Computed example of a mutant assay.
Amino acid sequence: MSTASAFATAATFLWLGMVFAISFIEAPLKFRAPGITIPLGLGIGRLVFRALNAVEVVWAVVLVVCAAAGGWIGDAQGILVIIVAVLLAIQVGGVRPVLNRRSDAVLAAGDAYVEGPRSNTHLVYVAFEVVKVGVLIAIGVLLLA
């Protein structure tokens, strides 16, 4: 295994583990904790997801650089690296701002917040997470093959 592939493999599985831990474990459980209100949970979630997305951008850059350095940008795993980077860019640049506007409104209401209908945008974000996880698993498997 080349150095580029080794770094890419590590970055892929670290990224995958972070998404699983934050998006599929921490985020849903946070709202079940005693005393956590919707505004408080959203405030925590915004901080956590801002940090997660920042680290994800770093992993995406690492993967793109490794794909280019390793000469496999046109191979299946290289194409998947581009796909996962594009998915992340859409999430961070397109979906998160819509979610932030909604959470801004909830946070501005503070204790006066009354729970309303759930946002469909949140489901779009979750769908991106699921697809991103699938692509990261595929990248990891191809790099290990």
Score class of each variant (00 low, 15 high):
132 K>T: 04
125 Y>W: 15
61 V>T: 08
141 V>A: 02
137 I>D: 09
68 A>V: 14
45 G>R: 05
122 H>Y: 03
30 K>E: 09
18 M>I: 04
9 T>K: 14
31 F>P: 10
98 V>F: 06
103 S>T: 12
29 L>H: 09
127 A>T: 08
57 V>S: 11
73 I>N: 11
127 A>M: 07
45 G>D: 02
76 A>H: 15
116 G>H: 09
145 A>P: 12
43 G>P: 04
50 R>G: 09
78 G>N: 10
47 L>W: 13
14 L>M: 00
34 P>S: 07
79 I>G: 03
2 S>M: 10
21 A>W: 03
100 N>L: 12
34 P>Q: 09
57 V>K: 10
128 F>Q: 00
20 F>P: 00
59 W>R: 01
115 E>T: 15
75 D>Y: 13
116 G>Q: 10
67 A>W: 01
139 I>E: 00
83 I>R: 01
95 V>E: 10
12 T>R: 01
60 A>D: 00
145 A>T: 15
46 R>S: 06
64 V>Q: 07
56 E>Y: 08
135 V>E: 02
34 P>K: 11
83 I>D: 01
122 H>V: 05
57 V>W: 08
119 S>M: 02
8 A>I: 09
122 H>L: 05
53 N>H: 11
7 F>C: 08
94 G>I: 02
47 L>R: 15
137 I>M: 12
36 I>G: 12
111 D>Y: 12
14 L>H: 00
36 I>D: 12
26 E>K: 14
28 P>A: 10
98 V>Q: 09
137 I>K: 10
64 V>E: 06
17 G>K: 04
27 A>C: 07
25 I>N: 03
128 F>Y: 04
106 V>M: 01
83 I>P: 02
125 Y>P: 06
81 V>A: 12
72 W>G: 00
44 I>K: 01
101 R>D: 12
118 R>E: 13
27 A>F: 06
98 V>W: 02
115 E>M: 14
117 P>T: 15
112 A>G: 11
90 I>H: 05
5 S>Y: 11
52 L>M: 10
34 P>D: 08
40 L>P: 05
35 G>D: 05
55 V>I: 11
78 G>S: 11
35 G>C: 05
40 L>Q: 09
19 V>E: 00
16 L>W: 12
10 A>E: 07
137 I>H: 07
135 V>Q: 03
4 A>L: 07
113 Y>C: 10
141 V>F: 00
55 V>D: 00
20 F>Y: 07
83 I>V: 15
106 V>R: 04
140 G>W: 03
87 L>P: 05
20 F>T: 02
72 W>H: 06
109 A>V: 11
104 D>V: 07
41 G>K: 05
46 R>N: 11
94 G>T: 02
51 A>Y: 14
1 M>L: 11
31 F>C: 09
62 V>I: 13
117 P>A: 15
